[in-house]
Structure formats: C-alpha cells, structure tokens
C-alpha cells in the first residue's frame, strides 16, 4: 500500500492537465517527492555526468506558496540551463528555504510543463505526515 511508504506520489486523472498526489513525512520530504513526481511527469532523463550543484533560497509566507515556488524554480533551471535535479538538501525555517540541489544535464524530456498552479492547493496533515494534490498546466 502506497501510504505505508513514508514518502511517495501518484498521478491522478485530470481532463486536460496533469495532477499528482504527493506525500512525505515532513515538508522537506513533501517538496522532494513533488520534485521527483514532476521529473516523472515530464519524462526527464539525465546524463550520467557531469554532476552539477545549484544553490538557491526562497522566502515564503505559507507552505503552499513554498511548494509552488520551489517547483517553479526547478522548472526554470530545466528550461534555461537544461539541468535536471534528482537529489535535494533542503533546510526550511519559518519563512525561508535554503536549497542545495544536485543533478546533471538533461539527456531527454518528453513533456513541457507550462506552470505549477495553486488550483485547490492545500498541504494537509495526515497520519503519515503531509500530503498535497498539485495540478500542473501542460
């Protein structure tokens, strides 16, 4: 059963766009699973090397805003630098995320995501930790 895993994601049906349900034992794990789900949705494959690192910080007023901003930040790297990320070191305090993200140049991409939306976005507490449904405009 998927919920027995501490973190994970699954794709949910959406008529026109893409929707995922992601869950994690805490906010960092939720963000990482959201990033990995997005990588899967766009069919991203990375080159084996060179391994690359990027650092960024994001300020936020609520955790839903953080989730959207974090994914949009990764999308910007994907589009402008052609780099994808598969490992994450995230440090989150009340209103700031400090991220170190590890990845490599993109070998192939199957789909384009136009944006990460706020549609019905609510990060909820569950017995397993945190959970959110995210709709991507594709």
């Amino acid at each position: 059963m998927k919920e027995s895993q501490t973190s994970g994601y699954e794709e949910i049906e959406h008529t026109a766009d893409c929707q995922v349900r992601v869950w994690g034992k805490d906010l960092s794990f939720l963000l990482m699973q959201a990033a990995i789900s997005m990588n899967t949705l766009i069919g991203m494959a990375l080159k084996p090397e060179p391994r690359l690192t990027r650092n960024f910080s994001l300020s936020f007023s609520d955790i839903e805003e953080l989730l959207v901003s974090f994914l949009n930040e990764l999308l910007f790297f994907i589009e402008m630098e052609g780099i994808g990320f598969d490992q994450f070191k995230l440090s989150i305090d009340d209103h700031q995320l400090d991220a170190i993200v590890y990845g490599a140049p993109i070998a192939s991409l199957r789909k384009e995501i136009k944006a990460v939306t706020y549609h019905n976005l609510k990060i909820e507490n569950t017995s397993h930790g945190l959970e959110a449904h995210i709709v991507f405009d594709v």
Partner: peptide
Amino acid sequence: MHQGYGFPI
C-alpha cells in the same frame, strides 16, 4: 468546456 485550474477552459 473542460476542467482546467481555477477557471474552467
């Protein structure tokens, strides 16, 4: 029409 995000398409 179909489902979008926020507004319907």
